[in-house]
Design a protein around this nucleic acid. Structure first.
Lengths: 147, 147
DNA sequence: ATAAACCCTAGACCATGCTCTAGGGCAACC
DNA sequence: GGTTGCCCTAGAGCATGGTCTAGGGTTTAT
């Protein structure tokens, strides 16, 4: 049992364009062609495609995915390099997740400010201070450009 | 006290290019110009720039940041719209974080497979099965292209 | 045997987010 | 008054990751 590119696109929710693009980028070295030159995806290929999606969805760059898939093609001997690649990626993703969480905290702070019953007053004070700072420095007041 | 674009670049770790690009994109409507047409950043501007960085670092698109900054320029009256924008963004970021965590779990599964003492055997079996699947379907074996 | 519905490649095109270059003005020091 | 070191704009260029078009072959059903 093999699958056409259309069937794989439906299964993976990747577009046919994207699948062909990935192939062109060397991300699908495991996919064979039939007599007509058509890509024939096996179930094993779908598993590798799933791995590819996980790497892509965690933000791995195409060049790194290509490297990983190349290592996969080389069999068990490449396990150490695969480990290193995945571990490096994993660490980068976790660091990025932490950075995003930190930055999102600040967004949350803004949101709780806006949720305050005196939000209007606080924001009004902030605005007044900003305008004052501008004029104190002999600068035009950008907040009145809206008039 | 105001800051030049160079000083702001140093403080924020954004490049001068990026700051000018952001300004061109309408992300810095609050920054005034001095008599020479030079950007003059105030301390209040730096706070807004910090907010901008948080939004950018959590992946908000430039068009949405522009919208937020435009709302900020309008003063307290725009608080409801700001809330909606930030909440939508916050929810999207959290959903994205969860999606990444899910995908990273699969990467971790791969890593623990590679960590297994019988990793070589398991990977070897997988490879053998994949090759068998290809030939069973009358397809060329892509794993021998390396010879 | 011809239409419909697939498949292919090469390469153009696009969106996003910068990054850099060219050409020119301002400001301070020697 | 020239050199240095900033500042400016407009617009070109680039990296990434697709997305689409043109031109052409294959398969299946009628």
């Amino acid at each position: 049992m093999t699958y056409t590119i259309k069937q794989v696109a439906e299964k993976t929710h990747l577009s046919i364009y994207t699948l062909r693009f990935y192939d062109k980028q060397g991300l699908l070295p495991f996919v064979s062609r039939d007599q007509s030159g058509y890509r024939a995806f096996t179930d094993g290929d779908l598993l590798l495609l799933h791995t590819l999606s996980c790497l892509k969805n965690t933000g791995m760059k195409i060049s790194d995915i290509r490297q990983y898939m190349t290592l996969v093609m080389q069999g068990p001997a490449s396990i150490p390099q695969r480990q290193q690649l995945l571990r490096t990626h994993r660490d980068a993703v976790l660091a990025q997740q932490r950075a995003i969480a930190r930055n999102l905290q600040e967004v949350d702070r803004k949101l709780s400010l806006y949720d305050s019953p005196i939000a209007t007053d606080l924001v009004g004070l902030e605005l007044a201070a900003a305008r004052k700072e501008k004029t104190a420095n002999g600068l035009p007041d950008p907040f009145s450009k809206l008039i």
